[in-house]
């Protein structure tokens, strides 16, 4: 039995250990590989960058804790860019967990950049049957949300809401949707982007990215941030590398290890078949 035949019968647990080491060592001792920025991430970054100062950026917080490693870093990077540009940030979660997650990120970045809740940003809060509520916000935000934010505070008393009555292209410069499934960008496309003409960029998990790419090509998305890799690119564009960049070295070494396993496995299989 040669080495390739032996590798055909290797215990999966050995592969798990090798893979754990391949990922853990670069996390402990970062050795990042070069990272080129993809066109779609740059488009998303430019989309926010071109918004006029003081205009409204609508943020869709549609993910849960299970995808925070991918969606957290890009959420922070976009918030940082928006606050740096003095955009007014309106958070609208269609996922219950998205409400608390984006609230925490906005509080953290807002505190760092001295932004005030109610004046510079607001969290409209999750509502039951959120997709219908999203549609209603295109008519009247106060009526759709029963006039209160996520914590029950009156929206009408907040300075940020004084010139913002509805989600439409006259009052909102653009949408940045953070999505991991349904409801997500598709609901925004159907209820806001197409009927109301509000432009939108999307950040999604790598699993969802292939399904979302056609919408970039057709111009329905103004940009697409793809998973952890896209998040790392976005962090670099914003000029504040964070957790996504820290993970990208390990991600690249992990991919190399998988490719090596696949090549070795196939060589072993072909050699076995040829005998």
């Amino acid at each position: 039995m040669n080495i390739f035949e032996r590798m055909q019968k290797i215990d999966p647990r050995v592969i798990y250990i090798i893979f754990f080491l391949v990922l853990a060592i670069p996390v402990l001792f970062p050795a990042p590989l070069p990272l080129a920025t993809t066109k779609e991430t740059k488009m998303a970054y430019d989309f926010v960058e071109k918004m006029p100062e003081g205009s409204v950026l609508w943020i869709g917080a549609d993910y849960g804790p299970s995808t925070v490693p991918e969606m957290g870093p890009v959420s922070k990077a976009v918030l940082r860019q928006a606050f740096k540009k003095n955009l007014k940030v309106v958070i609208f979660p269609m996922w219950q967990d998205g409400q608390a997650l984006m609230q925490n990120f906005a509080e953290e970045i807002g505190k760092e950049m001295k932004k005030e809740y109610g004046k510079d940003w607001v969290n409209l809060g999750w509502r039951n049957e959120a997709v219908s509520v999203l549609r209603l916000t295109t008519d009247n935000i106060l009526s759709a949300t029963a006039g209160v934010d996520w914590a029950g505070k009156k929206l009408a008393d907040m300075p940020i809401m004084q010139n913002l009555t509805a989600l439409n292209k006259d009052q909102v410069a653009g949408i940045f949707e953070f999505m991991t499934g349904n409801p997500g960008a598709a609901q925004y496309l159907e209820r806001v982007v197409e009927p109301k003409g509000v432009p939108m960029a999307v950040a999604c998990t790598a699993v969802s990215a292939p399904g979302e790419m056609p919408f970039v090509r057709s111009g329905q998305y103004k940009g697409l941030v793809n998973g952890l890799r896209g998040a790392a690119e976005y962090e670099n564009l914003v000029g504040k590398p964070g957790k996504a960049n820290a993970g990208m070295g390990a991600q690249s070494y992990g991919h190399l290890a998988i490719m090596l396993f696949i090549i070795l496995g196939n060589i072993g299989y072909l050699l076995k078949r040829s005998r």
Binding site: L23, S66, E70, T205, V207, G227, L228, A250, Q251, H255
Partner: peptide, 9 residues
Amino acid sequence: MARISLFLG
């Protein structure tokens, strides 16, 4: 890639 990202988290 997504699953590796989650494990990295």
